[in-house]
C-alpha cells in the first residue's frame, strides 16, 4: 500500500482538467517519471506557481469535477511521481477517479461544505493530512489545530488501494 500522508497543496478551483494536470505534448513520453517536472504546469490560477508550490506536497485538496477531460492515466502518474497519492475533492470526473484507484491511489470525495470549511480553516497555513484507509478517517493538522473527518470509499476501491491496483486483482480473479 502506498503512503497517504503529507503536506497539502490547496487548489481552490473546480473543473481542473487533465490538460492542466499534464499537457498533451507530454503524452509522447513512455516513462512515468518523465511527467514529473510538468505536473500542473498549464494551470492558471491566482496565487499558484507550479515551479514552487508542488515541491514537498503529498496531498491535493481541490474543488469539484477534478480531472475532467481526457482519459490519460498520465494525470495520476504525474501526481504519483511527485509523491502525491491522495486527492480530496467534492467530486471527480469518472475516468480520472477510476485511474487513481486502478493505480492504488486515493481520490476521496467529501461533501462540498466540508471541503469549503477545510479551505477556510486551513488554506494558507502549512497543513498536513494523514489518511487512514482502514478506519476511513482523514486527520488534518496545522500547528496546534487538528480536525478529524470520516470518509467512505467502496469495498472494491479499498481492495484496489490495499492490493496495489487492478492488474493483479483482475489477473488473479478473472
Amino acid at each position: 500500500m502506498k503512503e497517504f500522508k503529507g503536506k497539502v497543496l490547496f487548489l481552490d478551483r473546480s473543473d481542473i482538467n487533465t490538460d492542466e494536470i499534464i499537457p498533451a505534448k507530454y503524452l509522447t513520453e513512455i516513462e512515468k517519471i518523465a511527467m514529473g517536472p510538468h505536473l500542473l504546469e498549464d494551470l492558471k490560477m491566482d496565487g499558484f506557481d507550479p515551479k514552487t508550490d508542488i515541491q514537498g506536497k503529498s496531498v491535493v485538496l481541490t474543488q469539484g469535477n477534478f480531472g475532467c477531460g481526457s482519459s490519460r492515466e498520465h494525470a495520476p502518474w504525474a501526481l504519483e511521481v511527485n509523491g502525491i497519492h491522495v486527492v480530496i475533492a467534492p467530486s471527480f470526473a469518472r475516468i480520472f477517479r477510476q485511474n487513481m484507484y486502478n493505480c492504488g491511489m486515493l481520490a476521496i470525495e467529501l461533501p462540498q461544505k466540508t471541503v469549503d470549511d477545510l479551505f477556510k480553516e486551513f488554506a494558507g497555513n502549512d497543513t498536513v493530512i494523514a489518511v487512514d484507509v482502514k478506519a476511513g478517517q482523514i486527520t488534518v493538522q496545522a500547528g496546534a489545530k487538528t480536525k478529524d473527518i470520516g470518509f467512505e470509499i467502496s469495498g472494491f476501491d479499498k481492495e484496489l488501494v490495499q492490493t496495489g491496483g487492478w492488474v493483479e486483482y483482475a489477473d488473479q480473479n478473472y
Partner: peptide, 12 residues
Amino acid sequence: GVGTTDLEVGIL
C-alpha cells in the same frame, strides 16, 4: 473511455 490500467486489464 478508460485509463491505461483499465485498458491493460481489458487487453489481458
